[in-house]
Nucleic acid binder design. Structure first.
Lengths: 221, 221
DNA sequence: GGTTCGCTGACACTCGGCTGACAGATTGTA
DNA sequence: TACAATCTGTCAGCCGAGTGTCAGCGAACC
């Protein structure tokens, strides 16, 4: 299940992205209005978290255009202050919920969950791939039912791979998801990360497809 | 299914051309505005990738003229880095998606696929030729439904041939696609590649047409 | 029968990916 | 505050898969 986070402040945006990723969603993050409009219009998201103050095209306009073209996914609006006018405008433009900054990440995730539940879809809390169980809600990883400590970044990686098990994922895609940029600063950082993760979950769990990318299989049993 | 790439920078243009060809499209590439306008107005393309900065007639004007004369094919705009005005103008001129330079080729292909899907025609993700199945999305090759390991270059070749199954492809065309240059450094490199591929998929899958080139038939059954 | 074209095995080089070591940053703790 | 532990990116060296090259051979065409 995919979520879209539209927020131009990178600190807040990455926080929200991590929160939703921990809740079991694959998250795209976008930092400007026009990109957000296109992404929401062309991709299929289970939920959207939308900041109102955006460069290029403001959030309300983006939302109105989505609704005008028949997009019905739940949208949760973020706005700078507890500004009532904005809230009303947001709801009228077709928002499903509203949160004023500053907010607690936990509250945002809770509301997002509620929206998802209301919309019918529910994020699978535990993904099972071969001998692995990825508990997205509690941010835990089980290998043959034994809890295995992984670092935050390692968890984001295994979580990302687990949502697309058996698909070959290019290193660029991984960089894009982990660091929010498809600019691959140093591929070696990801190789090192993969190596550390393999040590914990067994080296046969993640297959290397030389020249293509990586593929999560879960390994034997 | 045909695609039109309008881009005056040959490096970018050839990259895009190869990316779309790998995705299963037959690509025409044009490097100036007037020719682009004419081609888009008279030929039938499933999708157009349009750079905005073009010699002769700029991209936005070309797009507006297409729309004014009733052409409805999906158009993906390439625009200079982070220029909102241009992007918004592009949208209003009737673009269906846009991408800022520099971009990852993979992302362009993904978006192009999304546009094609939305437009109804869909680039088949799995091509079936005789006993072969080419999974373009996951970059896998199945021979009689058994996954068969191929190297990146071998995959690009079989993918290229599969998109034009039953057609005889000249060695020069293959070189052009694989190496981006029709200058054939050494034909033997391609012969060796063909041989290695045949070993994996069965020697009767690729027919040699002496003096003309190669033809993919998929072999018996 | 000779010539040309394509096939194939062997070999060498390149480069992608793996790994151990280290260092800076961050977080937790006495 | 100072110290320890953990996390994560970087560097250097290694290994092996992937690919181009070469030489010799066989088959097709004249």
């Amino acid at each position: 299940m995919r979520a879209l986070v539209v927020e131009d402040d990178p600190d807040i945006g990455i926080d929200v992205e991590n929160g939703l990723a921990d809740a079991g969603l694959v998250v795209d993050r976008i930092t400007n209005g026009p990109d957000a409009w296109f992404a929401g219009d062309t991709e299929d998201y289970a939920i959207v978290v939308l900041d109102l103050g955006l460069p290029g095209l403001d959030g309300l306009t983006v939302l109105r255009r989505w609704r005008a073209s028949g997009r019905t996914m739940p949208v949760l609006i973020l706005s700078a202050r507890g500004d009532w006018t904005e809230k009303v405008e947001g709801i009228e433009a077709g928002a499903d919920d509203y949160l004023a900054k500053p907010f607690q990440l936990g509250e945002l995730v809770t509301r997002a969950r509620a929206l998802l539940r209301r919309a019918g879809g529910h994020a699978a809390p535990v993904l099972e791939i071969g001998r692995l169980k990825v508990d997205t809600r509690n941010r835990r990883l089980l290998v043959r039912d034994v809890e295995t400590r992984v670092s935050p970044l390692e968890f984001r990686l295994i979580n990302f791979l687990a949502h697309q098990a058996d698909r070959t994922i290019a290193v660029g895609e991984i960089a894009d998801h982990l660091y929010g940029t498809s600019e691959i600063g140093d591929v070696n950082a990801i190789e090192a990360l993969i190596m550390r993760l393999r040590r914990k979950i067994g080296s046969d769990s993640i297959e290397t497809r030389r020249g293509f990318g990586y593929r999560l299989t879960g390994g034997a049993s």
